[in-house]
Write a protein that binds this DNA or RNA. Structure first.
Length: 724
DNA sequence: GTTCTAGAAC
DNA sequence: GTTCTAGAAC
C-alpha cells in the first residue's frame, strides 16, 4: 500500500534502484521469516545477508556481512541485512552502503512481547531518519509486520518506496501511555534498576501537548486577564508546535517548588517566587518564565499573580498558567524504584534521560538544580520540542516526609531561594548558549526544533543525599559551583573577558583587565613557529611578514589548518583591538584562500573559520577547520565543544565586533566546554563522544541555521558555479 | 595542547 | 570485563 506507483515508470532509461533494508529487532523477533516470505514472492532480486549463517551456515562477522552486501549491490540486487542492528553504531556501516542509486531502509521489529527476552534490548536505540535512512517502517504488532511484508513483497525490480517514517504511531501511543498512566494515576511499571531511593517524592510537572490542548479552553485558564489568556494560548502553541518553531520564545515552565506535598507556607513561597522572578526576569533576554499549577483554583498562583502585579513585573516575561487537574495527580509519592512520575517521564523521554538523571539526581541536595539535556532519542525532544529537563530539590516542611525542616523557615526560605536561583540560573545559561548559537532568530521558521526552541520541564525532588561529587559532571548548575566559578558571574548575560584558559594557568593569571596570563611551556609551540618560522620549514605551509600557516599537529577534522599571527604580544583574541583589524582581515583572507584550496581537492568539505575564546596555545591563531570532525584526535568533550559552542567565535563575527566595539565578545566560560554534546547539524544531544562521533558520521541534516548565515561556513561550489 | 591512568559507568 | 571520562603532569 505504500508503494509509490508513480515511480514504477521511470521513462525510457529505466534505472534499477537498489535497496538496503536493515532489519532491526531482537533475536527471534521475526526478521528471518520476514526475509523468507518477501523473497519467496517478490519479483525483485533480493539477497539476504544473515550474520548467523554467513560463514558456511555458521555465525560470521559484521565485516563478512558488509562484504557480502556490497557484492550483492554490485550485482544490482537488493539486500536484507538480517542481524539485530539494535544500536546506531551497529547499523552505521550498513547505512553507509547507501548512495543516490541505493536507498537505505529500516524495518523495525519493535514487538512488545519480545522486547523482554534479552537484556541487550534494553540498550536498543530505535533508528532515526537522521542516521541516513530514507525510510523507516516500525512494526509493533503482527499486523504491522504483515503490512510491511506485503509492501516489500509487492516491490517489482524498478519500484521504490516513499521516504519517511512509517508506523510510528504506536510508538507514540506507548510514550503517551506512560504519560497518560501518570496523568490518570495508574501505576507505571517500576524500573528495578533505578536508584529510586534517592528519587522519592518527586513533584513533577509534565507538560505535554495533550495537557496544553486540553487546558486551552477559556474555562481552564482560571482567573487570568485577557492578556494572560492570549499569552497562555501562545504558550500552548509553543509546546504544541515546538517542532515547527512557530514560537521562538524560550520558555521555562516551572511549578511552585515545595508548596504542595512539602507543605511550604504559601504566602512565604509566593514572596520568594516573586522576588526571584523579578531578580531574574531582567537577565533572561527574550526568554520568559511561566509558573504552572495544574490544580484548579490554585492559591499559590493567585498569591503570586497579586504580588507580581504589585511589583510591576513585566507580564510578557512572567506568566502564570492554571490547569484543571487535581494536584494530587501530579504530586504523588513515588515508590522506591523510580516508578510513577519518573517512569512516566522516562518512558516519554527515553532511557538516555534516565541514565543522565540517575547519575545526577542521586546527589541532588536541597536548593540545587540539575539540568539534564534531553537526548536525541527522546520523544519529548523530537515531539514536544523540550530540550532539557531541570530537576530541582526544594525544602521539605512536611514532618511526614524524610528530612523535614521542623518548621525552620529561616533555613526553609534560604533553601527555597537557592532552589529558584539555581533553577533560573540553569535556564539562563542554556538560553544564553542557545541565543549565541542562533544569533538571528527571526529566520529560523521551519528549522530544526532544538535550534530555536528552548523549552523546559521541571521536576522537583525532596530526598536529600549526601554525596556531591557527581555535580562535577556536566550540566549541573548549583550555587556553590557558581560561587566558585570565576569572572563576571554577577550578570549571567555578560561576557567574561580575558579570563583563564583553564587548568594550572589560572593561578598565574594577572587579572588586570584580563589581558595578561602566563603560558605553560607546552603552550609555546605556536609562538615559536610564529617567531621563527624558518626553523619549522617542514611544518609551515605559508610564511609572510604577518602570518604563518600550518596544519594543526593534532587536527580535529579531515582538514584543520592554523593561520598564526606573527605579532609579538598578540597572544590571543583578548589582546586584539581595532589596531589589529587589518591583520585579522588578512588572516581571514588567508584562511579563506586555504579553505578554497582544500575544497578543490575535496568538494564535499565545508569549512568554518574562527577563534577559540580562550585558546590553550599562545599566539593568536585562526582555526580553519572542516566540519566533518572526522579525526582520531577529536577525543573529548572539550575538543568538541571548543569548536561547536559559542566558545568558538566565527572570524567574520570577530572582525565585525572589533570594528564596531573595539573588542571581540569572548565567550570564555568553562561551562561551555563541558556542555552536553550536541550535533552541529541537527542539534541532537548525545551521551558521550563515541556516540556523538558515530552520529555525526551519518547525520545528513542541514547545518544549524546560525551557521548558514553571514558566510560563517565556507562551502564548495557545484559544477554550475553555485554554492552548495 | 597531549598523554597517562584511576575509577566510574556500563 | 570493557568503555569512557576527568584530573594530573608535562
Amino acid at each position: 500500500m505504500d508503494v509509490d506507483g508513480g515511480s514504477s515508470s521511470m521513462g525510457e532509461e529505466e534505472k534499477r534502484k537498489m535497496m538496503v533494508v536493515i532489519l532491526v529487532g531482537a533475536p527471534g523477533s521475526g526478521k528471518s521469516t520476514f526475509c523468507d516470505r518477501v523473497m519467496r514472492v517478490s519479483t525483485r532480486p533480493w539477497v539476504r545477508v544473515c550474520q548467523d549463517t554467513i560463514s558456511n551456515g555458521k555465525s560470521g562477522t559484521k565485516t563478512q556481512c558488509l562484504t557480502s552486501a556490497a557484492r550483492a549491490l554490485k550485482d544490482e540486487k537488493s539486500v536484507f541485512i538480517d542481524r539485530c542492528n539494535l544500536d546506531r553504531e551497529q547499523r552505521a556501516d550498513f547505512v553507509k552502503l547507501g548512495s543516490p542509486q541505493i536507498d537505505v531502509h529500516a524495518v523495525v521489529f519493535d514487538l512488545p512481547a519480545k522486547l523482554c527476552i534479552s537484556r541487550m534490548l534494553q540498550k536498543k536505540e530505535l533508528p532515526k531518519l537522521s542516521e541516513g535512512f530514507s525510510r523507516i517502517a516500525f512494526c509493533q504488532n503482527e499486523s504491522d509486520v504483515q503490512a510491511a511484508m506485503s509492501t516489500y513483497s509487492a516491490l517489482g525490480p524498478l519500484d521504490t518506496l516513499p521516504s519517511g517514517c512509517f508506523g510510528q504511531k504506536s510508538s507514540d501511543a506507548k510514550i503517551q501511555l506512560g504519560i497518560m498512566k501518570f496523568l490518570k494515576k495508574v501505576d507505571a511499571p517500576v524500573n528495578a534498576e533505578s536508584k529510586g531511593n534517592s528519587l522519592q517524592n518527586n513533584v513533577t510537572t509534565e507538560i505535554t501537548k495533550e495537557n496544553y490542548s486540553r487546558c486551552k479552553g477559556p474555562e481552564d485558564i482560571a482567573r487570568t486577564s485577557s492578556k494572560e489568556e492570549k499569552e497562555v494560548e501562545d504558550l500552548a502553541l509553543s509546546y504544541a508546535d515546538g517542532c515547527s518553531s512557530l514560537n521562538n520564545i524560550p520558555t521555562l515552565a516551572f511549578p511552585s517548588i515545595s508548596t504542595a506535598d512539602f507543605q511550604f507556607d504559601l504566602e512565604k513561597a509566593a514572596d520568594i517566587i516573586v522576588e526571584k522572578v523579578s531578580e531574574f526576569v531582567t537577565k533572561l533576554g527574550n526568554a520568559r518564565l511561566v509558573l504552572v499549577d495544574l490544580s484548579s483554583g490554585s492559591k499559590i498562583l493567585s498569591l503570586v499573580r497579586a504580588k507580581a502585579k504589585q511589583k510591576n513585573i513585566d507580564s510578557d516575561k512572567f506568566l502564570t498558567f492554571v490547569g484543571r487537574y487535581n494536584s494530587t495527580i501530579f504530586e504523588r509519592r513515588l515508590k522506591a524504584g523510580g516508578g510513577g512520575v519518573n517512569a512516566a517521564i522516562f518512558s516519554a523521554a527515553g532511557p538516555a534521560l534516565e541514565i543522565a538523571t540517575k547519575e545526577r539526581a542521586g546527589s541532588l541536595t536541597p536548593g540545587k538544580a540539575v539540568v539534564v539535556p534531553l537526548p536525541s532519542t527522546s520523544p519529548l525532544f523530537s515531539r514536544e520540542g523540550v530540550t532539557h529537563v531541570i530537576h530541582v530539590l526544594g525544602p521539605n516542611m512536611n514532618p511526614q516526609r524524610p528530612n523535614f525542616l521542623n518548621n525552620d523557615y529561616i533555613k526553609g526560605c534560604k533553601v527555597l531561594r537557592e532552589a529558584y536561583s539555581s533553577l533560573f540560573e540553569g535556564f539562563a545559561f542554556i538560553v544564553r548558549s542557545q541565543e549565541a548559537l542562533c544569533k538571528d532568530r527571526t529566520v529560523k521558521l521551519g528549522s530544526v526544533l532544538s535550534e530555536s526552541t528552548v523549552d523546559f520541564e521541571i521536576s522537583c525532588m525532596n530526598q536529600v543525599s549526601n554525596t556531591d561529587q557527581k555535580f562535577k559532571r556536566e550540566g549541573v548548575y548549583e550555587s556553590e559551583r557558581n560561587k566558585k566559578s570565576k569572572g563576571c558571574q554577577e550578570e549571567l548575560g555578560s561576557n567574561i573577558i580575558g579570563a583563564t584558559g583553564g587548568g594550572d594557568n589560572a593561578k598565574n593569571e594577572k587579572n588586570n583587565g584580563g589581558v595578561s596570563k602566563a603560558w605553560g611551556s607546552w603552550a609555546q609551540a605556536l609562538y615559536h613557529v610564529a617567531m621563527h618560522p624558518e626553523m619549522h620549514k617542514n611544518d609551515v605551509m605559508e610564511i609572510s611578514d604577518d602570518i604563518v600557516v600550518l596544519s594543526d599537529l593534532y587536527p580535529k577534522a579531515k582538514r584543520h589548518l592554523l593561520v598564526v599571527a606573527r605579532f609579538e604580544g598578540l597572544d590571543r583574541l583578548a589582546d586584539a583591538s581595532k589596531d589589529h583589524l587589518e591583520l585579522l582581515r588578512a588572516m581571514h583572507a588567508v584562511g579563506l584562500k586555504w579553505a578554497e584550496k582544500c575544497l578543490i581537492e575535496d568538494k564535499t568539505l565545508v569549512f568554518r573559520l574562527g577563534y577559540h575564546s580562550a585558546p590553550s596555545m599562545r599566539q593568536l591563531h585562526l582555526h580553519v577547520i572542516s566540519q566533518d570532525f572526522d579525526s582520531k584526535h577529536l577525543k573529548n568533550k572539550k575538543h568538541w565543544n571548543s569548536f561547536n559552542t559559542p566558545f568558538f567565535l566565527d572570524s567574520v563575527d570577530v572582525i565585525e565586533e572589533i570594528d564596531k566595539c573595539g573588542r571581540a565578545m569572548l565567550k570564555d566560560d568553562d561551562r561551555l566546554l563541558s556542555m552536553e554534546l550536541r550535533c552541529h547539524r541537527c542539534r541532537s544531544a548525545h551521551p558521550n563522544l563515541p556516540r556523538l562521533k558515530s552520529h555525526i558520521g551519518n547525520c545528513r541534516a542541514p547545518f544549524a541555521p546560525s551557521l548558514l548565515q553571514n558566510s560563517r561556513l565556507v562551502l564548495g561550489q557545484n559544477e554550475d558555479g553555485t554554492n552548495r
